[in-house]
């Protein structure tokens, strides 16, 4: 059996490149117009999502946290850092748990991540703005978190089997409600 686990150096180098890519996503996203100001897709979360089944939860957590810190340093303010940090940590924790305990695949984990990202940001907004009135945003943020998480999750689930095996270890894990093994689909 051939299991070539990447060396530590390779893992670090790969994580750094992916962290940069995630940072680029979060920057590019600011140019995508949204119907409601402040709403976003969360494309940067695609990278930690893809790292969950490949390089593992600790690596994915590092990349996610580092991306948030760098993003705040480069484009943000101390207050925006608090929002992203709350959203990022809570959403990552939920995604990692959902994935680790095989509750959902990548898509489900990403939906939960999107929803909890927005819930955490409301929770932070209450003390920061000093009023519980922001909870009226709840339906908007629940809906947008669900849709955005779905979009990123589907993209991630689509990309996962197409990642280069030389860089990413094989995602060896069964789906929560997987059917008996199907023959691998052959792309023409």
């Amino acid at each position: 059996m051939k299991t070539s686990r990447p060396t530590v150096a390779r893992r670090v180098a790969l994580s750094a490149v992916l962290c940069a890519l995630s940072l680029l996503f979060s920057y590019l996203e600011t140019f995508i117009p949204m119907p409601v100001p402040g709403m976003k897709i969360g494309l940067a979360n695609l990278i930690p999502l893809l790292l969950l089944p490949t390089l593992g939860i600790p690596t994915a957590a590092c990349v996610s946290l580092l991306r948030i810190a760098l993003s705040a340093l480069l484009f943000g303010s101390p207050v925006s850092f608090l929002y992203s940090l709350a959203g990022g940590t809570v959403s990552f924790a939920v995604m990692a748990l959902a994935f680790k305990f095989r509750l959902f695949g990548l898509t489900g984990a990403s939906i939960l991540g999107g929803v909890f990202h927005n819930l955490a940001q409301i929770a932070v907004a209450i003390p920061l703005l000093g009023t519980a009135r922001v909870t009226v945003l709840l339906p908007w943020l629940l809906l947008s978190g669900t849709v955005a998480g779905l979009a990123v999750g589907l993209l991630g689930a689509f990309l996962l089997p197409r990642l280069p095996r030389s860089l990413f270890p094989n995602p060896a894990r069964k789906e929560p409600d997987a059917e008996p093994a199907e023959p691998p689909e052959n792309d023409p």
Partner: peptide
């Protein structure tokens, strides 16, 4: 890996 499982559609619809 499946893109979308039944459990995920339940999650989506309930949300």
């Amino acid at each position: 890996m499946k893109l979308f499982s039944r459990r995920e559609s339940v999650l989506l619809i309930s949300l």
